[in-house]
Computed example of a mutant assay.
Amino acid sequence: MTPHNELRLLPWSGPDGKPCYLSTDNSDSHLSRLADNTEEIQLGLAADLVTHTLEVLSGEGPQTEELRRLSADLAEALKDVLRVAASRGHRLTARDLSTREEDDEGPRLPAAAFG
Rank of each mutant, 00 (worst) to 15 (best):
R88F: 00
R83E: 08
D96V: 08
S71K: 08
D104E: 13
N37G: 09
T53N: 03
I41H: 11
G17V: 06
R108P: 03
R8Y: 14
E65A: 14
A113D: 09
A72H: 07
H52P: 01
L49Q: 00
P15W: 01
I41A: 11
E60V: 04
A72M: 07
R100F: 02
F114H: 06
A94K: 04
H90E: 11
A94F: 04
L57Q: 08
L9E: 04
L67V: 01
A77P: 00
H30M: 07
H90C: 10
L31G: 03
A47I: 05
G106P: 14
R108N: 03
A77V: 02
A35Q: 07
A46T: 03
P11C: 04
A75W: 02
G44F: 06
E39S: 14
N26W: 06
V84P: 00
D96P: 02
C20V: 11
I41M: 13
A77I: 00
E39A: 05
C20S: 07
R83V: 12
N26A: 09
N5A: 11
L45N: 15
T24L: 06
Q42A: 13
L74A: 12
K18G: 15
G106Q: 10
M1Q: 08
E66A: 13
L49T: 03
Y21G: 05
S23W: 13
S27M: 11
C20N: 12
D48N: 11
T53K: 02
L70A: 02
A85H: 13
E55A: 09
E105T: 10
G14S: 15
D80E: 14
Q63T: 11
H90R: 13
L34I: 07
L49K: 00
L92R: 12
A86K: 14
P19A: 03
L49Y: 00
D103R: 11
F114D: 02
L31I: 11
P62R: 05
E102S: 10
P62I: 02
Y21I: 07
E101I: 05
S58H: 11
L49A: 00
A35F: 02
L49W: 01
T2L: 13
E40R: 15
E105F: 01
D80V: 01
S29L: 09
Y21S: 03
L97P: 00
S29T: 06
L22I: 04
R83S: 11
N37E: 14
R33K: 15
G106M: 10
D73F: 03
T53E: 04
L92A: 09
S27I: 12
M1I: 12
P15K: 07
A113T: 09
R100D: 04
A86H: 10
L70P: 01
F114I: 04
T93I: 05
V50Q: 08
N37F: 11
S23M: 07
D48R: 08
L9V: 05
S27Q: 09
E105S: 10
G115M: 04
D96K: 06
A35S: 15
S98G: 03
L67Q: 03
